[in-house]
Every structure is written in structure tokens, then in C-alpha cells.
Design a protein around this nucleic acid. Structure first.
Length: 576
RNA sequence: GACUUGGUAGCUCAGCUGGUAGAGCACAUCCCUUUUAAGGAUGGGGUCCUGGGUUCGAGCCCCAGCCAAGUCACCA
């Protein structure tokens, strides 16, 4: 038994041993069939008191109130919590009361998983409760759970430290039921979107995550290596170029829910891996795509909430069509009162300075526009809004605007002050596409780490001809944040990326104490005493160490003979 | 990457001007044979994030580091 265990963990392991000595398997192999859930009982029982007279449910024990021969407990299953009533003489009809007195009262703990059989009734306090006739241990838990209590909506001792919640999401899910709900909603979002797209008969596809050339977005990639091919591969930053190859191949509509990876900063809006749904539809343009996005997101909101109105922080966002539309120039004029559409680069730089937007020499006209928009407009757009017609410099994969030179046919939807999607009329002119890639290469040469790389095979594909196509990328995590009223992307990802936790990995490190001749069973005692390595023992006083070891042996009730003083002296000599 | 705040028992948190490490829940033992966060009594439980420094003495002050959260920068 490891000495690193806390007292409560030791008690639980002792209980586990005792259960086994009583002939009870704490981890039975056979299935435990249930015929209802906590939620179903709580919803339906009051109407139909004759129902639920023979229920079987299973879940985790979340609280107990023991009073002698009768006890109440709380069982939590995937649907919710329900109270259990245990009565000694019903659990143990015969003379032997062990299964109640010892097993239930002493050997079970909060966090254990049990199955119960019985009938439903209402207590005199008015709570729907399962009167337990039989119970079975399905899994003994060896670690204490954070105990969260609640009354009248007020939560006591809430488990809310974000670091622990994210690192040990399972605990978060156990004790904070609303978290389980958030992820159900996220699943509903994805399901709704998928159904919407499948109904339109688009093909759901899968394309490579490992790519020899990364492309389709301006971002820095993760780099990896394939042994057999002896080649560098990148984790995709987007799947755009692959999906367009499929449009070249003749499909009318393809989409993918894609995990993408970007080797960039992290924040409450950015995780290194995130999910994006990309969709490409042949014969369409960006105007058509705007209508489609509105329709789709409105539908998702209705499917999730039954309404187009969603509360997000302080705001109520309404996804009802039609959404507001601004050109990028129009948005800047609307929010700043300055019409920049006809300005030269120099005039625009001056205008930016006047608005308090910082620019530097490397920024071209397009970049300055983007900067002004980002600083002065984006954050103010709370209701879903389309921003259209972007400067060409920022969009090497979008088609030139049909009317306005210098712009491309691109839109983003902004909602709650953040971009949620990005779309364009896809560039299918291979000569123009090659020229745009070459501009990117030039940017790369000048040191832009996010400049795109030229993908010769992609160019070859569109040289064969790609139909006019509208393309869309929509950030699933961002959308999930809005639709679940979550303040951080980490709240809509089960396992957000965290820096590895050093303290936990150090625990399993092996020690070189054994090399000094210290028997295996004493190594952990040395560690407990603060001697984690042979070197740390070098200057120790043998008498003091001996006393420490004996003290720990007594304190921890170790079942092994005390070491002899000369042994301890010898071990320390060995180290020197 | 920068700045701010934080890290103390299984969980939530106190901890004064630097002077023997505290509470509630949880846990154990006993009493009570009883329900609604919490019946009573008693008790056990600590690498005060890590490493240095100042000091007679550091959870507290100083320096360095680790981890997180928030804000900013970059980005979706």
C-alpha cells in the first residue's frame, strides 16, 4: 500500500479488503440491468402512483444520512439524482444484519457505484424516494469525491477551481451536473447541423489530418514525422484544399466536421485543437452561402432551445433571419463615421492614427482596414451580423469581387463580438490562384510565419477545373460557447489543453534508494521521511533517520519489523 | 510573450504586525435509532506550489521558478 495515500484513501482501501473478506466482489463482472432512471421516476411518478413498483436503477452514491436502523441516501445516475430509503430489516430480513450494519453503514462511501431494486414512494417530507429492498455494489471508489451540497438552489462548497475542473473533468462532470448538460447541448448542436446538411444531400467526408503541405488558412502548424515515409508531416490547420479537390472530383456538396490544429497562443477563445465545420457547395456563391448560414444557425438554435433567442452573458442574442449585413467599409463608416473606401494606403494610415488604431510600416492597405475593423467594429457587433467584401490581401483563396476592385467575395458572421464563421466565393481561376500563392510566398520570405505555402497538387487540381463554388468554415467551439452561454472555450471542450502537471508525474518516478541496499518495502518510508533520492541521504544523521523511520512505522501502522540501527547506518554508508 | 491576481487538509476557504497551522463539509470512533446542505460528542488528517534568501524565528517579507485564472498581443 502506497504511503502517499491520504487517510481517507487508506480507509477506503481497508473497506475494499473487508468487502472481499465478506465474500463480496466490489467489481462484479456481470451486467446490472436497469429498467428506469432517476429523471424518469421524478417526472412520471407523481402522476401515476401505481407505476414504478418494481424499479431497478444504478448510479453513484452522492450522500448519506444514516440514523440507526433506517437511512436515506442519494443516488446519481446519468439523468439526475434520486433519494433512496434503506431499512435494516428489509435489507436484511434474517438474523444476520451484516449487509446493512457493516456493508452499507461502514463499508460504503460517497462515490461508490451501486445498483438498487425496490419501489417508489413519497416520504413524509414529500420527496419521491426509492424504497430499497436489495442493493448491490457495482464499483467501490477508492478516492474521496469533492462533496457539494445544495439547498433551494444555493450551492455549498462548490467544486469550481478551473484548473482542477479541467484537469479532472470526470470530477467536474460528477459533481457539477450542469456541466454534463453543456456537453449534451454541444452534441445537440453538432447533430442539428449535421442533419441540416445531410437533408440537403451534401456528402459528409473525411480528409487527412496528417498533411505533407499544410494550407487553407493563415496559421502556424504543428509539425510531426513519419518514420516509414521518412518525411515531415503537419497536423492540418484547415481542410479547405482537400475539400475543394473533392469538388473538382465532381461532388456537388461536401462537408466535414474537422479537428484542426494551430500552433498559436491560447486564451479563452483559443485552444490548440479546435473543431471547424467546413462546407463546399458547387454552383453557388457567397451570397447564397450567407442565406444558408442564417437558415442553418437559426435552425440549430430552434433545435437546441426551441427559440431563436439565446441569453449570452448580459446580452440576448436573436438568431432570427434575416441578420444584419454590412460591407466592411460600411461597418467602419457606421461605427467610426469615416468613409475609408476611397482612401489610399497613406490616407488610411492617417485615418487609423486619428482613430487611435495602431499601425506599422509592414501593414498594407488591406491589413490596416482589417485592423480598424477589429479595433472599432467587431467587438460592438453583438447581434449576428454579416460583414462582407474583404480586402484582397487578406484572402488568397477567395474570388475577386464581381464589381469592386481590390476586394474579394468574402463574408464573416460576427456574433457576441467574435467571428463565428468565414466564407467566400471560392477562387477557381488557376492562374489567379497561382499568383496569389506567389504573393504569399513573398510574404513568407519577408518573415510572416503565417504565410501560406504553395500547394502544387492543389493548383494542378483546379487547373483541371473547379465549378463555381461557395465555401464556408464555421467554428463549432465558438458557436457552442454562444449557444450554451459559456464564457470560455474550455467550458465547451471536455479536455482543454493544459500545461502538463509536473507534480503528478513526479509521483511515479522511480527512486535510486534501492541501490543503497534499502529493501523495497522501506523505500516509500524513506520518501515519506523526505529522502527522495540516494543523494538526499548522503549527509543524513543515521540516528535521526533511524528514529524517523521507527516513528513513521508506528504512525502508519506498518506491518513489518523495525529496521536495526546498524542497518540504517550501513544504508547511509552505502550512499557515500 | 507582457501585466495583474491566486496556489494552505479529500473539497470550499480563513490565517492579524513575522511568534506552536485553523474553520465548515468530508473522514474515523462513540452516543442517538432519528431524514432534507448541517442530530450530538470526541478524534485523526498538512511538502502551507517548489527552490533560495532575510530573520533568533517565515504560511506571511525578498529573489527566482512552476501551475492556473483574468486582461492584452496573435489567432478561429
Amino acid at each position: 500500500m502506497s504511503l502517499k495515500l491520504s487517510e481517507q484513501e487508506r480507509f477506503r482501501r481497508e473497506a475494499l479488503d473487508e468487502l472481499q473478506q465478506l465474500g463480496i466482489d466490489p467489481y462484479p463482472a456481470e451486467e446490472y440491468s436497469i429498467n428506469t432512471t432517476a429523471q424518469e421516476i421524478l417526472e412520471k411518478y407523481p402522476e401515476d402512483e401505481k407505476a414504478f413498483q418494481d424499479v431497478q436503477v444504478a448510479g453513484r452514491l452522492m450522500g448519506r444520512r444514516i440514523m440507526g436502523s433506517a437511512s436515506f441516501a442519494e443516488l446519481q445516475d446519468s439523468s439526475g439524482r434520486i433519494q433512496l430509503y434503506f431499512n435494516r430489516d428489509e435489507i436484511c430480513p434474517g438474523e444476520d444484519k451484516t449487509f446493512y450494519n457493516t456493508v452499507f453503514k461502514r463499508l460504503l462511501d460517497i462515490g461508490d457505484i451501486i445498483g438498487v431494486k425496490g419501489h417508489v414512494f413519497v416520504t413524509k417530507m414529500g420527496e419521491v424516494t426509492i424504497h430499497v429492498k436489495e442493493y448491490k455494489i457495482l464499483c467501490k471508489s477508492l478516492r474521496p469525491l469533492p462533496v457539494v451540497k445544495e439547498k433551494d438552489g444555493k450551492v455549498y462548497d462548490a467544486f469550481k477551481d478551473p484548473e482542477q475542473r479541467y484537469r479532472q473533468r470526470y470530477l467536474d462532470l460528477i459533481v457539477n451536473p450542469e456541466i454534463r448538460d453543456t456537453f449534451r447541448q454541444r452534441a445537440r448542436l453538432i447533430q442539428s447541423m449535421r442533419n441540416f446538411l445531410l437533408n440537403k444531400e451534401y456528402l459528409e467526408v473525411e480528409t487527412p489530418v496528417l498533411q505533407p503541405i499544410y494550407g487553407g488558412a493563415a496559421a502556424r502548424p504543428f509539425k510531426t514525422y513519419h518514420n516509414t515515409l521518412d518525411t515531415t508531416l503537419y497536423l492540418r490547420i484547415a481542410n479547405e484544399l482537400y475539400l475543394k479537390r473533392l469538388i473538382v472530383g465532381g461532388y456537388d456538396g461536401v462537408f466535414e466536421f474537422a479537428k484542426d490544429f494551430r500552433n498559436e497562443g491560447m486564451s479563452r477563445f483559443h485552444n490548440p485543437e479546435f473543431t471547424q465545420m467546413e462546407l463546399y457547395v458547387a454552383w453557388k456563391d457567397y451570397r447564397w452561402m450567407m442565406d444558408m448560414v442564417e437558415e442553418m444557425v437559426e435552425k440549430i438554435s430552434l433545435d437546441m432551445h426551441g427559440t431563436t433567442k439565446v441569453k449570452v452573458g448580459e446580452n440576448e442574442i436573436d438568431f432570427k433571419r434575416p441578420w444584419k449585413r454590412f460591407t466592411m467599409y460600411g461597418a467602419i463608416e457606421h461605427f467610426t463615421g469615416v468613409d475609408v473606401s476611397q482612401m489610399s494606403e497613406e490616407e488610411m494610415r492617417a485615418a487609423a492614427r486619428e482613430m487611435g488604431v495602431e499601425t506599422d510600416e509592414t501593414m498594407g492597405r488591406g491589413k490596416i482596414i482589417d485592423e480598424i475593423f477589429g479595433e472599432k467594429c467587431e467587438g460592438l457587433l453583438i447581434q449576428p451580423t454579416f460583414i462582407t467584401d474583404y480586402p484582397i490581401e487578406m484572402s488568397p483563396l477567395a474570388k475577386k469581387h464581381r464589381e469592386m476592385p481590390g476586394l474579394v467575395e468574402r463574408f464573416e458572421a460576427v456574433c457576441n463580438g467574435k467571428e463565428i464563421c468565414n466564407a467566400f466565393s471560392e477562387l477557381n481561376d488557376p492562374v489567379d490562384q497561382r499568383a496569389r500563392f506567389e504573393e504569399q510566398i513573398e510574404l513568407g520570405r519577408r518573415g510572416d510565419p503565417e504565410a501560406m505555402v504553395l500547394d502544387e497538387d492543389f493548383l494542378r487540381a483546379i487547373e483541371h477545373g473547379m465549378p463555381p463554388t461557395a465555401g464556408l468554415g464555421i467554428g463549432i467551439d465558438r458557436l457552442a460557447m454562444i449557444l450554451t452561454n459559456s464564457n470560455s472555450i474550455q467550458d465547451v471542450l471536455f479536455f482543454p489543453q493544459m500545461r502538463p502537471d509536473k507534480s503528478s508525474s513526479a509521483e511515479s518516478e522511480t527512486s535510486d534508494l534501492g541501490d543503497a541496499g534499502i529493501p523495497d518495502e522501506w523505500v516509500p518510508v524513506f520518501q515519506k521521511a523526505g529522502f527522495t533520492s540516494a543523494a538526499s541521504l548522503k549527509d543524513a544523521n543515521p540516528n535521526k533517520v533511524f528514529n524517523q523511520l521507527c516513528g513513521l512505522r508506528k504512525k502508519l501502522k506498518l506491518d513489518m519489523p523495525a529496521p536495526k540501527p546498524e542497518d540504517v547506518k550501513q544504508w547511509i554508508e552505502n550512499v557515500k
